[in-house]
Design a protein around this nucleic acid. Structure first.
Lengths: 247, 247
DNA sequence: TCGCAAAGTGTATTTTTGACACAAAGGTCC
DNA sequence: GGACCTTTGTGTCAAAAATACACTTTGCGA
């Protein structure tokens, strides 16, 4: 819209990111702790901040995420807009806003995003106003700042829906993984038990996994086979028409 | 956030509505024509406008929709936020904004919504800056104002997804309808052909329709049976756990 | 070597899907 | 009133998919 770049903050619009991670056991979410305002407890929060005036929304989400946690180049999927006029009105949040925002009373509409990352190859690097950035198991997440709890619920709902339509779970796993890990991942996300044999049969029938020579080592039980996701086969499958990814 | 009401416009955030209607034959969308700016053709547009400063997003969407088309008390589902910095930069749009907006250069992020209404019991009543409000068959919709085309595509995608998860189609039909009408509706939304017998079998097996005594009259062929949607049975079904609504 | 823990595997039954064609009803037109 | 047109409404069979279910294998540790 403007010819010159305008990297001022847009005081009315922010982006918040729900980053899911999987530690091969439980589903986690990346949360930050804000710099403490003296004399007040502070909630954990989703990484998020105001966008720039001339910045596309998803670019902003990525930038903000990077500034607060060090995560880079993540594919973010939009959850939606959250715009309750009272969404910033909890006392702790008001205090924090007064401390850091130019216009702490402004109404801000936020755009929620979510993504999946492998917890292994990423160590949170808090910066900016994030005093800490930590993976928290999803069942242990209590109250969050602002309406972040609501954004989280929305993201989780979208994630579940998506998982029944696209085999996105691989983004949460290391490149090599076992079928049991994938199985646990599906159970963690969907929040239900899935029969082991039926899960394996269906997953393998999709023919988007490649079994590797390698097997687990040093485990005190039968070592399991490693697999990797075959993106090529997946795309071919989509082209030839396939839709039955649900469990 | 504020104690006193603040019905000023928020110059940065708008709401746009994609209203789907079904004329028992084709899927339509409710579009408005803006007041013409002298000397310029103008595109059709989705009903939409800036929100108020203290207004929840969905309230705003409903208000705006009502002001432009007369539609009232519609359940609107969010499509998402659309915030490309260049989304208002087409020349026709710029001219129109200059004519009507206080701050025509402001960057505006819009929140898209969609809904389904019965075309029968509603006649568009254009008002405000809408010179006309008209149902347009979805295949005949050409270029739209701003990024409204993109919002429309997004809404249609959500609608399809939703239809495979919830039998929402009934909202588009009169209270009494025939299975053929419902069949055509599904085909219109999903954009595919569905086998008549298989469609009927599956739909009836859900046991959420009630067949009425009444049949069609005055049609030059075998008259068809009327049905109505049984909301009670539908909710019971959800409680006992059912998920196979897809076609 | 015994025990433990998780991996890995097959079958039988039921349910769902998909493909497919013809008779029934009512109006229209001559 | 009979021929014809249009849309409704119906059943079966075969293939595919879902579900339920239990025991053997492997490797480590004690």
């Amino acid at each position: 819209m403007h010819d010159k770049m305008n990297h001022e903050l847009n005081p009315r619009i922010s982006a918040d990111c729900v980053i899911f991670g999987f530690d091969l056991n439980k589903l986690n979410v990346l949360l930050i702790e804000r710099e403490t305002v003296v004399g007040l407890d502070t909630y954990r929060a989703l990484p998020g901040d105001l966008i720039f005036e001339d910045e596309p929304l998803d670019t902003a989400a990525n930038r903000v995420l990077n500034e607060l946690t060090g995560l880079e180049d993540i594919y973010l999927e939009q959850v939606g807009a959250f715009g309750d006029p009272d969404r910033l009105s909890k006392p702790q949040d008001r205090a924090w806003l007064k401390a850091v925002r130019q216009d702490p009373d402004a109404r801000v509409v936020t755009i929620g995003y979510y993504s999946l990352v492998g917890m292994n190859n990423y160590v949170p690097q808090p910066a900016s106003f994030a005093r800490a950035a930590t993976w928290i198991p999803i069942e242990e997440i209590g109250e969050l700042a602002f309406d972040h709890r609501q954004i989280l619920e929305g993201a989780l709902k979208k994630l579940k829906e998506k998982l029944n339509v696209q085999p996105i779970g691989f983004n949460l796993l290391p490149e090599k993984f076992t079928l049991s890990q994938l199985h646990r991942l599906y159970e963690a996300i969907l929040g239900v038990e899935l029969d082991k044999r039926n899960f394996r049969r269906k997953m393998l029938k999709m023919d988007i996994l490649e079994s590797l020579e390698e097997r687990q080592e040093g485990v005190p039980h039968k070592p399991s086979q490693f697999y990797k996701f075959n993106e090529q086969k997946y795309h071919d499958l989509l082209k030839t028409g396939f839709d039955n990814f649900a469990f």
